[in-house]
Design a protein around this nucleic acid. Structure first.
Lengths: 194, 194
DNA sequence: ATCACACTAGATAGATCGCTCTAGCGGCAG
DNA sequence: CTGCCGCTAGAGCGATCTATCTAGTGTGAT
């Protein structure tokens, strides 16, 4: 919107970046306000619920932005199969360019807090569900029946998330590329005959 | 080995359980010794390198045990296809029974520390690589050529890890079951014609 | 000009963090 | 019995954590 982001926006952006790299518990609020170049008091003004409320918002906002980003990859693609493959290819490229730091914006948080913070867990679940529905609707639009599309969305997202884990650990894009090939093949196989 | 585990073993076991549920940074050493019913000093006697050394050992030991567990599922299976599917089915069952806490023993740690602790990152990478080789050798033993077996191992493990993320967030086994079906189908498709 | 209010700013509290330190226990070798 | 040593045991250190508190600043309405 504005050329100079507000303090609140800077806090959210800085948090998203730090959470994605070091996780939720591994990131301190002091570190966040330092990275956001924001005064300490502003954090608790904009997020009276403290770190947990900030985390929940970051999950939803970063999750929404990542969903848009995936859509932006699918849109110009000639068909769903190549669109699917390109999501993995571009994710691999971006991961390597960020020195294997920028994978899924919410996966690390999701695993960390799944058993300890119910509001944040629900936020991650809703973001994932939103992605699944977006993916599934792309598949149904290509002529795949809804039940198969749902399954396909689940496996595609599982492949992406799992490959992110392996790639960040190994500092390789091997898993993402293999996952992309299989995801694309699965979509192609589910397509009705032309 | 012994019916009463040693203090060191209790510390490793308790750490593995806590790390898997809450992550590495989310678990304190005080909490570990309390859960292990071990004296505080013993931790630094057995692990002079502190929490990081403990984390590295936990990754390797828990990773090795989980690899054996997967092998124990494959072994009695009539063929690789049903073996693959059963890994996912049993993982789903165990996850639900543990109130969606016990997924992959090292995935949470892997994402958290990938960009902050090189010794621990290498440990996770080596554990994953060990699993991949185990999986690939099962596939080659079934007559699949090595290159395809490698790709298949990568996608199978990606499906498993990614589905764990989705299932813990959603508190559902839906993703694991869908992933298992697709993994089994991919293995079947790669099998040489009988 | 004045008031109200949203926001900035940072000192500081209270708890918890990882870790170090010294003291003592208990089994085994001589 | 004595001396040694692996291990137990926990007090306590400095650092850092999240969160609160008060004070100050800037802007827009009246």
């Amino acid at each position: 919107m504005s050329s100079t982001p507000t303090t609140k926006e800077r806090i959210v952006i800085a948090s998203a970046e730090l959470f994605r790299r070091q996780g939720y518990t591994g990131t301190g609020v002091k570190q966040i306000v330092a990275a956001a170049q924001a005064p300490f008091g502003s954090l608790y003004h904009h997020f009276p619920g403290g770190k947990e409320q900030l985390g929940e918002q970051v999950i939803r906002i970063a999750g929404g932005m990542y969903g848009e980003l995936v859509s932006a990859v699918f849109d110009p693609a000639p068909d769903v199969v190549t669109g699917t493959e390109q999501v993995f290819t571009l994710a691999a490229q971006h991961l390597a360019e960020s020195d294997y730091a920028d994978a899924c914006p919410i996966a690390t948080i999701a695993l960390e807090i799944a058993s300890s913070s119910e509001p944040m867990r629900i936020a991650t679940a809703e973001v994932f569900e939103g992605w699944l529905e977006k993916l599934a609707s792309r598949f149904t639009a290509a002529g795949i029946d809804p039940a198969t599309a749902r399954t396909l969305a689940l496996t595609t997202l599982s492949l992406l998330e799992g490959a992110f884990v392996l790639c960040r650990a190994a500092r390789t894009t091997e898993a993402l590329l293999a996952a992309g090939t299989q995801a694309a093949a699965a979509v192609r196989a589910a397509l009705p005959e032309a």
